[in-house]
Design a protein around this nucleic acid. Sequence first.
DNA 1: AAACGTCGTTACAAACTCGTTACGCTCGAG
DNA 2: CTCGAGCGTAACGAGTTTGTAACGACGTTT
Lengths: 241, 241
Amino acid sequence: MTSRLKVLTIEDDAAIRCGIVDALTFAGYDVIDAADGTSGERRAIEDQYDLLLLDLGLPGVAGLDILRQVQRLRPDRPVIILTAKGEEADRVQGLRSGADDYVVKPFSVKELLARIEAVLRRAIPKPEQPFAQWQQGILDFERRELRYHDQSRTELSEKESELLQYLIANSGRAISRDELLAGVWQISPQGINTRTIDMHIARLREKLRDNPESPTTLLTVRGKGYMWMAIEHRRAHESHG
Amino acid sequence: MTSRLKVLTIEDDAAIRCGIVDALTFAGYDVIDAADGTSGERRAIEDQYDLLLLDLGLPGVAGLDILRQVQRLRPDRPVIILTAKGEEADRVQGLRSGADDYVVKPFSVKELLARIEAVLRRAIPKPEQPFAQWQQGILDFERRELRYHDQSRTELSEKESELLQYLIANSGRAISRDELLAGVWQISPQGINTRTIDMHIARLREKLRDNPESPTTLLTVRGKGYMWMAIEHRRAHESHG
DNA sequence: AAACGTCGTTACAAACTCGTTACGCTCGAG
DNA sequence: CTCGAGCGTAACGAGTTTGTAACGACGTTT
């Protein structure tokens, strides 16, 4: 349930708007959109979003007026102007008015996405929380430590941390040892026979305080590999004994 | 008189470089510049500046390598790429590599200034806090001293104070020794092997009365670096019982 | 000159990491 | 049931990283 970032798109041309919505959605953003200046301004002021993609030259309210309102009422909200008005004077005016970037149509979707990322990198303090949690507490990969609900804590080693991050990033799926060797150890598992991974899992289970007899968090899938059982997936699976 | 913002320009073409320097100076910035990749990289790592204007396609070190080093060693320094390489792929790569903006030559000086303003608007250098507190007392960076709750006090040396300020300004994140060498000692850590930082940390811990066995304020993150644990972060993390 | 504070190096001990090996247990196909 | 492959883990050890005592060069203060 990594909270996705939300983009508000104000754009009157239906084709372009749909294209943007599709591209952003595909790129993993939540998107809300408005097709004219009047509704756009309302949404820009009232709605919850992390970035505003703003067309100038809209029917209804002028784009720059929306920008001004946003500056006044939602001052930290980042804005990228996306418009056909590509004259130098327009670009300068747009940026001077407080926009974070100014992209001229026709534009490259890839570049737009890259620019959105660049703006969000600066404007949104912490795009995603670095924490995960499990039964017994919280995982902090920045500090590479586990914090238990009882306030005590343990450190993770570098490899333990990487392994755990990999498993969590692929939670709910059994990961083979070969995949882990490739993904975490960055080595091609050419018929290599090693118990390293098993050892790391054992040490992780100990730190996670997971019962090795019947682990509930870091599962063994015999013949397949290991699997992280995310807390949010648990409920569905628990109901079978 | 608020101190003027300083821009570092790395650009090999003398004409363009002078044009930029003049324009930025006229616009009220302090400007320092480098004419090739090698000296540019050194300045980008060692010098003090608020924004980096970076040309790609330099003689000497490749521009993107400089960008990578800046990302690693001066992580919150904003960068605008300013180059003739205008292909979509280049622009996307530059932005994805962490640049804040990407301006293609030939460019409009007015627009460049507007974009610089836009980037600086978000990446304002945070004013250094003259005070901080920790478990055992209060830190006064103006007097470079520690005041303990029991009324006694100790002085910090110059380097100790700078190091501590850097760590506090980046609290909650593990700072690598290389980043500290760049940010506090202003030297490029090219394969340097030194225990200086460890010694300063040890002396700081002693003055902070932090237990070196399990420090609670100035943490070691093995293999990564050191991290200041701010008092205000402490509560948020612990409260989960 | 002597005493002092700073800050870097060196050297060594201690702690930690992470892989291997060995051995015992478990599961499940036959 | 038996047996072998798969798994858990204790024990070990080479290599790496960290803490810090001791020291020396240097500049400042007394």
